[in-house]
Amino acid sequence: MPSKTLTVDETLKLDNQLCFALYSASLAMTKLYKPLLKTLGMTYPQYLAMLVLWERDGLMVSELGDRLSLDSGTLTPLLKRMEAAGWISRLRDVHDERRVFITLTSAGRSLKTEAAKIPPCILSATQCSVPEILSLTQQVQALRGRLTLA
């Protein structure tokens, strides 16, 4: 199979840019989530944080930040709003006050039931099969991994 090489002009076309394809797909995906999350009273970044906490409750703030690729300056205001909403509690470690643990409240745990309605809506909107979604997700994760090593 011959490999396709692009001319200089072709490399500078917007439609040939992987970065733009990822960026515009991300915008479209976030737009799709917005009304679904509104019913939960949740923003997209809050949803991502809750997904992590539903997987593993009791994380340190730093662990949550690592999992979401967010720094503490971005994460702290997000967690304060989530705490004000009654979904989480933040507790300082009695032995090392620099360590802050995040635990779900009963209200935060109960949101998981409502949030379970979201993935089927997303799957339907993408018009992809489950294997296609999993494959795309793995490809993008692999790309992210290669880019973080670059």
Rank of each mutant, 00 (worst) to 15 (best):
T7I: 11
R92D: 12
M60K: 03
A25W: 06
S135P: 04
R92F: 08
D15V: 09
L136A: 14
L48T: 03
L36H: 09
Y47P: 02
T105I: 04
A116H: 03
K80S: 02
M1V: 15
T39R: 10
T103F: 05
T5M: 14
S124Y: 05
R90A: 01
A115F: 07
V8L: 15
L37D: 13
L79G: 01
N16M: 12
P45Q: 08
L40W: 09
T74H: 12
P119S: 06
L143W: 14
M82Q: 04
L12P: 06
E63I: 07
Y33C: 12
T5A: 15
C128L: 11
L134I: 11
L6P: 11
L143R: 11
L111P: 01
T148N: 15
L68W: 01
L48F: 01
S106C: 02
V130N: 10
M82I: 04
R90T: 02
V61D: 00
P45R: 03
S69V: 09
Q138T: 13
C128T: 05
K13W: 09
S24F: 07
L32Q: 04
A84Y: 03
L59R: 00
L78V: 06
S24W: 04
S129V: 08
C128G: 04
S3I: 14
K38G: 13
A107F: 01
L12H: 12
D9S: 15
R81K: 13
R92W: 06
T105E: 05
A28Y: 07
P45T: 03
Q46W: 04
L37Y: 14
W87T: 05
N16V: 12
L136N: 12
E132C: 09
A84V: 05
K112H: 07
Y23K: 08
K117T: 15
D15Y: 08
P131R: 07
D9M: 10
V61H: 01
L68V: 01
L27N: 13
Q127C: 07
E114M: 06
A116C: 07
Q17K: 11
R81C: 07
A125W: 03
T7Y: 11
R144A: 15
L147K: 05
T11L: 10
Y23R: 08
P35M: 03
L123I: 06
L53Q: 00
P120K: 06
D66P: 00
M42H: 08
M29D: 05
A107S: 14
E132I: 07
T74M: 07
G58D: 00
M82K: 02
R146W: 14
